[in-house]
Design a protein around this nucleic acid. Structure first.
Lengths: 202, 202
DNA sequence: GTCTATACGCCGATAGAC
DNA sequence: GTCTATCGGCGTATAGAC
Protein backbone atom coordinates (compact mmCIF):
# COMPACT_ATOMS: atom_id res chain seq x y z
CA UNK A 1 0.00 0.00 0.00
CA UNK A 2 0.97 3.61 -0.22
CA UNK A 3 3.02 3.40 2.95
CA UNK A 4 0.27 5.12 4.97
CA UNK A 5 0.89 8.29 2.98
CA UNK A 6 4.47 7.88 4.08
CA UNK A 7 3.95 8.96 7.67
CA UNK A 8 0.30 9.53 8.44
CA UNK A 9 -1.59 6.65 10.00
CA UNK A 10 -4.97 5.77 8.61
CA UNK A 11 -7.49 6.41 11.30
CA UNK A 12 -10.88 7.37 9.92
CA UNK A 13 -12.46 7.54 6.53
CA UNK A 14 -10.84 10.86 5.73
CA UNK A 15 -7.64 8.97 5.18
CA UNK A 16 -9.41 6.32 3.13
CA UNK A 17 -10.53 9.10 0.84
CA UNK A 18 -7.06 10.62 0.63
CA UNK A 19 -5.47 7.28 -0.10
CA UNK A 20 -8.02 6.44 -2.77
CA UNK A 21 -7.69 9.87 -4.32
CA UNK A 22 -3.90 9.69 -4.36
CA UNK A 23 -4.03 6.38 -6.16
CA UNK A 24 -6.59 7.47 -8.73
CA UNK A 25 -5.07 10.89 -9.35
CA UNK A 26 -1.65 9.34 -9.85
CA UNK A 27 -2.88 6.55 -12.09
CA UNK A 28 -5.37 8.30 -14.35
CA UNK A 29 -5.02 11.98 -13.62
CA UNK A 30 -7.03 14.49 -11.61
CA UNK A 31 -9.49 15.35 -14.36
CA UNK A 32 -10.15 11.74 -15.29
CA UNK A 33 -11.09 10.99 -11.71
CA UNK A 34 -14.60 11.76 -10.51
CA UNK A 35 -15.78 12.00 -6.93
CA UNK A 36 -17.80 8.90 -7.70
CA UNK A 37 -14.58 7.06 -8.52
CA UNK A 38 -13.00 8.22 -5.29
CA UNK A 39 -15.99 7.28 -3.16
CA UNK A 40 -16.07 3.85 -4.71
CA UNK A 41 -12.35 3.27 -4.25
CA UNK A 42 -12.55 4.49 -0.67
CA UNK A 43 -15.28 1.99 0.12
CA UNK A 44 -17.96 4.59 0.69
CA UNK A 45 -21.52 3.86 -0.22
CA UNK A 46 -22.24 7.38 -1.30
CA UNK A 47 -20.52 10.31 -2.94
CA UNK A 48 -22.08 12.64 -0.40
CA UNK A 49 -20.00 11.12 2.37
CA UNK A 50 -16.96 12.80 0.90
CA UNK A 51 -18.44 16.16 1.77
CA UNK A 52 -18.28 15.23 5.43
CA UNK A 53 -14.50 15.50 5.16
CA UNK A 54 -13.86 17.90 2.28
CA UNK A 55 -15.57 20.96 0.89
CA UNK A 56 -14.90 20.03 -2.69
CA UNK A 57 -12.77 17.97 -5.00
CA UNK A 58 -9.95 20.48 -5.15
CA UNK A 59 -9.68 20.42 -1.36
CA UNK A 60 -8.73 16.74 -1.53
CA UNK A 61 -5.93 17.50 -3.94
CA UNK A 62 -4.70 20.41 -1.85
CA UNK A 63 -4.69 18.32 1.30
CA UNK A 64 -2.72 15.59 -0.45
CA UNK A 65 -0.31 18.14 -1.82
CA UNK A 66 0.23 19.71 1.60
CA UNK A 67 0.77 16.38 3.33
CA UNK A 68 3.28 15.22 0.77
CA UNK A 69 5.30 18.41 0.74
CA UNK A 70 5.15 18.83 4.50
CA UNK A 71 6.36 15.29 5.02
CA UNK A 72 9.18 15.83 2.56
CA UNK A 73 10.04 19.08 4.26
CA UNK A 74 10.37 17.35 7.61
CA UNK A 75 12.52 14.64 6.09
CA UNK A 76 14.85 17.19 4.56
CA UNK A 77 15.21 19.05 7.83
CA UNK A 78 16.07 15.75 9.41
CA UNK A 79 18.64 14.96 6.76
CA UNK A 80 20.29 18.34 7.11
CA UNK A 81 20.46 17.90 10.86
CA UNK A 82 21.94 14.41 10.73
CA UNK A 83 24.57 15.07 8.08
CA UNK A 84 27.36 17.61 7.85
CA UNK A 85 28.71 17.61 4.34
CA UNK A 86 26.69 18.59 1.33
CA UNK A 87 27.62 15.32 -0.33
CA UNK A 88 26.19 13.36 2.59
CA UNK A 89 23.03 15.42 2.71
CA UNK A 90 22.43 15.04 -1.00
CA UNK A 91 23.22 11.34 -0.80
CA UNK A 92 20.60 10.85 1.92
CA UNK A 93 18.07 12.90 0.02
CA UNK A 94 18.59 10.87 -3.14
CA UNK A 95 18.24 7.70 -1.12
CA UNK A 96 14.94 8.98 0.24
CA UNK A 97 13.61 9.70 -3.23
CA UNK A 98 14.59 6.28 -4.55
CA UNK A 99 13.10 4.51 -1.54
CA UNK A 100 9.89 6.49 -1.91
CA UNK A 101 9.68 5.57 -5.57
CA UNK A 102 9.73 1.88 -4.71
CA UNK A 103 7.60 2.04 -1.58
CA UNK A 104 5.14 4.79 -2.41
CA UNK A 105 5.21 5.28 -6.18
CA UNK A 106 1.99 7.28 -6.23
CA UNK A 107 3.49 9.87 -3.93
CA UNK A 108 6.39 10.21 -6.33
CA UNK A 109 4.02 10.44 -9.29
CA UNK A 110 2.28 13.25 -7.46
CA UNK A 111 5.64 14.95 -6.92
CA UNK A 112 7.32 14.37 -10.25
CA UNK A 113 4.84 13.70 -13.01
CA UNK A 114 1.50 15.26 -12.16
CA UNK A 115 0.89 18.80 -13.36
CA UNK A 116 -0.62 19.94 -10.07
CA UNK A 117 -0.75 23.56 -11.16
CA UNK A 118 -3.56 22.62 -13.54
CA UNK A 119 -5.91 22.04 -10.61
CA UNK A 120 -4.10 23.88 -7.80
CA UNK A 121 -3.45 27.24 -9.44
CA UNK A 122 -1.35 28.67 -6.61
CA UNK A 123 1.02 25.72 -6.82
CA UNK A 124 4.61 26.69 -7.53
CA UNK A 125 7.14 24.81 -9.64
CA UNK A 126 9.06 22.11 -7.80
CA UNK A 127 12.25 24.02 -7.08
CA UNK A 128 10.31 26.93 -5.60
CA UNK A 129 8.55 24.82 -3.00
CA UNK A 130 9.86 25.10 0.58
CA UNK A 131 11.12 21.54 0.54
CA UNK A 132 13.15 21.86 -2.62
CA UNK A 133 14.50 25.33 -1.96
CA UNK A 134 16.33 23.60 0.86
CA UNK A 135 18.08 21.43 -1.66
CA UNK A 136 19.25 24.61 -3.35
CA UNK A 137 20.48 25.77 0.06
CA UNK A 138 22.45 22.56 0.47
CA UNK A 139 23.94 23.24 -2.93
CA UNK A 140 24.96 26.77 -1.92
CA UNK A 141 26.56 25.52 1.26
CA UNK A 142 28.42 22.87 -0.71
CA UNK A 143 29.80 25.50 -3.06
CA UNK A 144 30.95 27.68 -0.15
CA UNK A 145 32.58 24.65 1.45
CA UNK A 146 34.43 23.84 -1.75
CA UNK A 147 32.73 20.49 -2.17
CA UNK A 148 30.76 21.57 -5.20
CA UNK A 149 31.85 23.41 -8.32
CA UNK A 150 31.26 27.10 -8.41
CA UNK A 151 28.19 27.42 -10.61
CA UNK A 152 24.75 28.94 -10.15
CA UNK A 153 23.23 26.89 -7.30
CA UNK A 154 19.83 26.84 -8.97
CA UNK A 155 21.28 25.52 -12.19
CA UNK A 156 23.38 22.99 -10.29
CA UNK A 157 20.26 21.77 -8.52
CA UNK A 158 18.48 21.58 -11.86
CA UNK A 159 21.24 19.45 -13.39
CA UNK A 160 21.50 17.25 -10.32
CA UNK A 161 17.78 16.66 -9.93
CA UNK A 162 17.44 16.34 -13.68
CA UNK A 163 19.41 13.12 -13.58
CA UNK A 164 17.76 11.85 -10.42
CA UNK A 165 14.18 12.76 -11.26
CA UNK A 166 14.38 11.62 -14.84
CA UNK A 167 15.65 8.24 -13.73
CA UNK A 168 12.79 7.98 -11.26
CA UNK A 169 10.27 9.11 -13.87
CA UNK A 170 11.49 6.37 -16.18
CA UNK A 171 11.03 3.82 -13.42
CA UNK A 172 7.55 5.12 -12.64
CA UNK A 173 6.50 4.97 -16.28
CA UNK A 174 7.93 1.51 -16.80
CA UNK A 175 10.57 2.63 -19.31
CA UNK A 176 13.13 1.18 -16.92
CA UNK A 177 12.14 -2.28 -15.85
CA UNK A 178 13.81 -2.82 -12.50
CA UNK A 179 12.85 -1.15 -9.27
CA UNK A 180 14.26 2.28 -8.59
CA UNK A 181 16.79 1.09 -6.06
CA UNK A 182 18.55 -0.95 -8.71
CA UNK A 183 19.52 2.26 -10.47
CA UNK A 184 20.38 4.27 -7.40
CA UNK A 185 24.17 3.75 -7.34
CA UNK A 186 24.65 4.70 -10.99
CA UNK A 187 22.24 7.60 -10.84
CA UNK A 188 23.80 8.98 -7.68
CA UNK A 189 27.29 8.75 -9.09
CA UNK A 190 26.27 10.41 -12.33
CA UNK A 191 24.37 13.19 -10.59
CA UNK A 192 27.05 13.84 -8.00
CA UNK A 193 29.94 13.90 -10.47
CA UNK A 194 27.91 16.43 -12.42
CA UNK A 195 28.37 18.98 -9.66
CA UNK A 196 31.26 17.74 -7.51
CA UNK A 197 34.48 19.72 -7.54
CA UNK A 198 36.60 16.62 -7.74
CA UNK A 199 34.77 14.51 -10.23
CA UNK A 200 35.71 10.90 -10.60
CA UNK A 201 36.99 10.57 -14.13
CA UNK A 202 36.25 7.44 -16.09
CA UNK B 1 4.24 33.13 -32.81
CA UNK B 2 4.58 29.41 -32.54
CA UNK B 3 6.91 29.23 -35.52
CA UNK B 4 4.12 27.93 -37.77
CA UNK B 5 4.04 24.74 -35.75
CA UNK B 6 7.71 24.50 -36.55
CA UNK B 7 7.36 23.52 -40.18
CA UNK B 8 3.76 23.51 -41.28
CA UNK B 9 2.52 26.62 -43.02
CA UNK B 10 -0.76 28.11 -41.91
CA UNK B 11 -3.13 27.89 -44.81
CA UNK B 12 -6.73 27.53 -43.74
CA UNK B 13 -8.63 27.66 -40.50
CA UNK B 14 -7.67 24.14 -39.58
CA UNK B 15 -4.26 25.49 -38.72
CA UNK B 16 -5.76 28.39 -36.82
CA UNK B 17 -7.53 25.85 -34.67
CA UNK B 18 -4.39 23.79 -34.14
CA UNK B 19 -2.36 26.84 -33.25
CA UNK B 20 -4.98 28.10 -30.82
CA UNK B 21 -5.36 24.67 -29.27
CA UNK B 22 -1.60 24.24 -28.87
CA UNK B 23 -1.38 27.54 -27.07
CA UNK B 24 -4.31 26.89 -24.76
CA UNK B 25 -3.41 23.27 -24.03
CA UNK B 26 0.15 24.26 -23.21
CA UNK B 27 -0.83 27.22 -21.06
CA UNK B 28 -3.77 25.90 -19.09
CA UNK B 29 -3.94 22.21 -19.79
CA UNK B 30 -6.13 20.05 -22.00
CA UNK B 31 -8.93 19.60 -19.51
CA UNK B 32 -9.10 23.27 -18.60
CA UNK B 33 -9.56 24.14 -22.25
CA UNK B 34 -13.02 23.92 -23.78
CA UNK B 35 -13.88 23.87 -27.46
CA UNK B 36 -15.45 27.25 -26.84
CA UNK B 37 -12.07 28.56 -25.72
CA UNK B 38 -10.39 27.14 -28.79
CA UNK B 39 -12.98 28.52 -31.18
CA UNK B 40 -12.67 31.96 -29.63
CA UNK B 41 -8.87 31.92 -29.71
CA UNK B 42 -8.92 30.72 -33.32
CA UNK B 43 -11.12 33.61 -34.34
CA UNK B 44 -14.11 31.47 -35.19
CA UNK B 45 -17.60 32.78 -34.63
CA UNK B 46 -18.98 29.43 -33.65
CA UNK B 47 -17.91 26.28 -31.90
CA UNK B 48 -19.54 24.19 -34.56
CA UNK B 49 -17.00 25.33 -37.12
CA UNK B 50 -14.42 23.21 -35.38
CA UNK B 51 -16.32 20.12 -36.40
CA UNK B 52 -15.66 20.99 -40.03
CA UNK B 53 -12.02 20.13 -39.40
CA UNK B 54 -12.04 17.66 -36.51
CA UNK B 55 -14.34 14.93 -35.30
CA UNK B 56 -13.89 15.75 -31.66
CA UNK B 57 -11.69 17.48 -29.14
CA UNK B 58 -9.34 14.56 -28.75
CA UNK B 59 -8.70 14.55 -32.50
CA UNK B 60 -7.22 18.04 -32.20
CA UNK B 61 -4.79 16.86 -29.56
CA UNK B 62 -3.87 13.78 -31.55
CA UNK B 63 -3.23 15.82 -34.68
CA UNK B 64 -1.01 18.20 -32.71
CA UNK B 65 0.82 15.31 -31.16
CA UNK B 66 1.40 13.65 -34.53
CA UNK B 67 2.62 16.84 -36.16
CA UNK B 68 5.05 17.61 -33.38
CA UNK B 69 6.53 14.14 -33.19
CA UNK B 70 6.64 13.73 -36.96
CA UNK B 71 8.44 17.00 -37.33
CA UNK B 72 10.90 16.05 -34.63
CA UNK B 73 11.39 12.70 -36.28
CA UNK B 74 12.29 14.32 -39.57
CA UNK B 75 14.69 16.67 -37.83
CA UNK B 76 16.44 13.79 -36.13
CA UNK B 77 16.79 11.87 -39.37
CA UNK B 78 18.30 14.98 -40.85
CA UNK B 79 20.71 15.36 -37.96
CA UNK B 80 21.83 11.78 -38.20
CA UNK B 81 22.39 12.16 -41.90
CA UNK B 82 24.41 15.36 -41.62
CA UNK B 83 26.65 14.32 -38.75
CA UNK B 84 28.96 11.37 -38.30
CA UNK B 85 29.97 11.17 -34.68
CA UNK B 86 27.55 10.55 -31.87
CA UNK B 87 28.84 13.64 -30.11
CA UNK B 88 28.00 15.79 -33.12
CA UNK B 89 24.59 14.26 -33.55
CA UNK B 90 23.72 14.75 -29.91
CA UNK B 91 25.11 18.27 -30.01
CA UNK B 92 22.86 19.16 -32.93
CA UNK B 93 19.87 17.55 -31.29
CA UNK B 94 20.43 19.49 -28.09
CA UNK B 95 20.76 22.66 -30.10
CA UNK B 96 17.44 21.92 -31.77
CA UNK B 97 15.70 21.44 -28.43
CA UNK B 98 17.10 24.68 -27.01
CA UNK B 99 16.19 26.64 -30.13
CA UNK B 100 12.69 25.19 -30.06
CA UNK B 101 12.29 26.16 -26.42
CA UNK B 102 13.00 29.78 -27.24
CA UNK B 103 11.17 29.94 -30.55
CA UNK B 104 8.23 27.62 -29.97
CA UNK B 105 7.88 27.16 -26.21
CA UNK B 106 4.39 25.71 -26.47
CA UNK B 107 5.66 22.89 -28.63
CA UNK B 108 8.24 22.12 -25.99
CA UNK B 109 5.61 22.29 -23.26
CA UNK B 110 3.63 19.78 -25.26
CA UNK B 111 6.69 17.54 -25.51
CA UNK B 112 8.14 17.88 -22.04
CA UNK B 113 5.56 18.96 -19.50
CA UNK B 114 2.10 17.95 -20.67
CA UNK B 115 0.84 14.55 -19.56
CA UNK B 116 -0.52 13.64 -22.98
CA UNK B 117 -1.33 10.10 -21.94
CA UNK B 118 -4.16 11.48 -19.82
CA UNK B 119 -6.11 12.41 -22.93
CA UNK B 120 -4.36 10.30 -25.59
CA UNK B 121 -4.42 6.87 -23.93
CA UNK B 122 -2.32 5.12 -26.56
CA UNK B 123 0.47 7.66 -26.10
CA UNK B 124 3.79 6.13 -25.10
CA UNK B 125 6.36 7.60 -22.74
CA UNK B 126 8.84 9.95 -24.39
CA UNK B 127 11.74 7.55 -24.83
CA UNK B 128 9.51 4.97 -26.48
CA UNK B 129 8.36 7.32 -29.23
CA UNK B 130 9.90 6.80 -32.67
CA UNK B 131 11.72 10.12 -32.48
CA UNK B 132 13.38 9.51 -29.16
CA UNK B 133 14.21 5.86 -29.73
CA UNK B 134 16.53 7.24 -32.37
CA UNK B 135 18.37 9.13 -29.68
CA UNK B 136 18.86 5.83 -27.92
CA UNK B 137 20.20 4.46 -31.21
CA UNK B 138 22.68 7.31 -31.41
CA UNK B 139 23.73 6.42 -27.90
CA UNK B 140 24.26 2.77 -28.84
CA UNK B 141 26.32 3.73 -31.85
CA UNK B 142 28.38 6.07 -29.70
CA UNK B 143 29.11 3.27 -27.27
CA UNK B 144 30.15 0.93 -30.07
CA UNK B 145 32.39 3.64 -31.51
CA UNK B 146 34.04 4.16 -28.15
CA UNK B 147 32.86 7.74 -27.85
CA UNK B 148 30.48 7.01 -25.02
CA UNK B 149 30.99 5.05 -21.84
CA UNK B 150 29.81 1.49 -21.83
CA UNK B 151 26.55 1.69 -19.91
CA UNK B 152 22.96 0.74 -20.68
CA UNK B 153 22.05 2.97 -23.65
CA UNK B 154 18.57 3.58 -22.28
CA UNK B 155 19.93 4.67 -18.93
CA UNK B 156 22.55 6.81 -20.62
CA UNK B 157 19.85 8.51 -22.65
CA UNK B 158 17.82 9.01 -19.49
CA UNK B 159 20.73 10.67 -17.72
CA UNK B 160 21.61 12.78 -20.72
CA UNK B 161 18.09 13.96 -21.43
CA UNK B 162 17.47 14.36 -17.72
CA UNK B 163 19.93 17.22 -17.63
CA UNK B 164 18.79 18.72 -20.91
CA UNK B 165 15.05 18.38 -20.40
CA UNK B 166 15.10 19.50 -16.80
CA UNK B 167 16.99 22.63 -17.78
CA UNK B 168 14.44 23.32 -20.49
CA UNK B 169 11.55 22.62 -18.14
CA UNK B 170 12.98 25.16 -15.71
CA UNK B 171 13.18 27.74 -18.45
CA UNK B 172 9.63 27.00 -19.57
CA UNK B 173 8.28 27.34 -16.03
CA UNK B 174 10.20 30.53 -15.36
CA UNK B 175 12.39 29.02 -12.64
CA UNK B 176 15.35 30.02 -14.78
CA UNK B 177 15.03 33.60 -15.91
CA UNK B 178 17.06 33.84 -19.08
CA UNK B 179 16.14 32.31 -22.40
CA UNK B 180 17.04 28.70 -22.98
CA UNK B 181 19.96 29.46 -25.25
CA UNK B 182 21.77 31.22 -22.44
CA UNK B 183 22.05 27.90 -20.63
CA UNK B 184 22.85 25.76 -23.63
CA UNK B 185 26.67 25.68 -23.35
CA UNK B 186 26.66 24.68 -19.69
CA UNK B 187 23.83 22.19 -20.07
CA UNK B 188 25.43 20.56 -23.08
CA UNK B 189 28.78 20.25 -21.37
CA UNK B 190 27.21 18.79 -18.25
CA UNK B 191 25.05 16.34 -20.17
CA UNK B 192 27.81 15.25 -22.51
CA UNK B 193 30.42 14.75 -19.81
CA UNK B 194 27.87 12.60 -18.06
CA UNK B 195 28.15 9.99 -20.78
CA UNK B 196 31.36 10.73 -22.65
CA UNK B 197 34.21 8.27 -22.36
CA UNK B 198 36.82 10.97 -21.97
CA UNK B 199 35.11 13.40 -19.67
CA UNK B 200 36.54 16.84 -19.32
CA UNK B 201 37.56 17.11 -15.69
CA UNK B 202 37.16 20.37 -13.86
C1' DG C 1 -24.67 11.60 10.24
C1' DT C 2 -26.04 8.57 6.53
C1' DC C 3 -28.16 8.02 2.13
C1' DT C 4 -31.73 9.42 -1.59
C1' DA C 5 -32.97 12.36 -4.64
C1' DT C 6 -32.14 16.00 -7.27
C1' DA C 7 -30.58 20.49 -8.81
C1' DC C 8 -27.50 22.89 -11.70
C1' DG C 9 -23.95 24.04 -14.89
C1' DC C 10 -20.83 23.03 -18.26
C1' DC C 11 -19.34 20.99 -22.18
C1' DG C 12 -19.10 18.00 -26.09
C1' DA C 13 -21.65 17.00 -29.86
C1' DT C 14 -25.59 17.16 -33.37
C1' DA C 15 -29.57 18.60 -36.07
C1' DG C 16 -31.14 21.38 -39.17
C1' DA C 17 -32.40 26.08 -41.02
C1' DC C 18 -30.57 29.25 -44.25
C1' DG D 1 -20.69 25.54 -45.24
C1' DT D 2 -22.06 28.76 -41.71
C1' DC D 3 -24.60 29.61 -37.62
C1' DT D 4 -28.63 28.85 -34.27
C1' DA D 5 -30.61 26.09 -31.31
C1' DT D 6 -30.57 22.42 -28.54
C1' DC D 7 -29.73 17.77 -26.82
C1' DG D 8 -27.73 14.53 -23.68
C1' DG D 9 -24.76 13.37 -20.24
C1' DC D 10 -21.65 13.73 -16.72
C1' DG D 11 -19.98 15.47 -12.60
C1' DT D 12 -20.10 18.57 -8.73
C1' DA D 13 -22.62 19.90 -5.19
C1' DT D 14 -26.80 20.43 -2.11
C1' DA D 15 -31.27 19.74 0.12
C1' DG D 16 -33.59 17.22 2.95
C1' DA D 17 -35.68 12.78 4.61
C1' DC D 18 -34.78 9.32 8.00
Amino acid sequence: MEQELHTIKRTDETDDILLAALKLFAEQGYFNTSLTDIAKAAGLTTVSSIYQSFNNKQAIAIKLNDMIFDSLNVSIDDIRRRNQKASEQLRSFVNLLFKLTDEAPNIMRFLLVMQTNEFIPQQKPLLETPAFTKVVKIMQAGIRAGEIRNIDPLLATGFFLGVINNTLRMVLSGELEKNADAYQPQAWLAAWNLIAKKSTCF
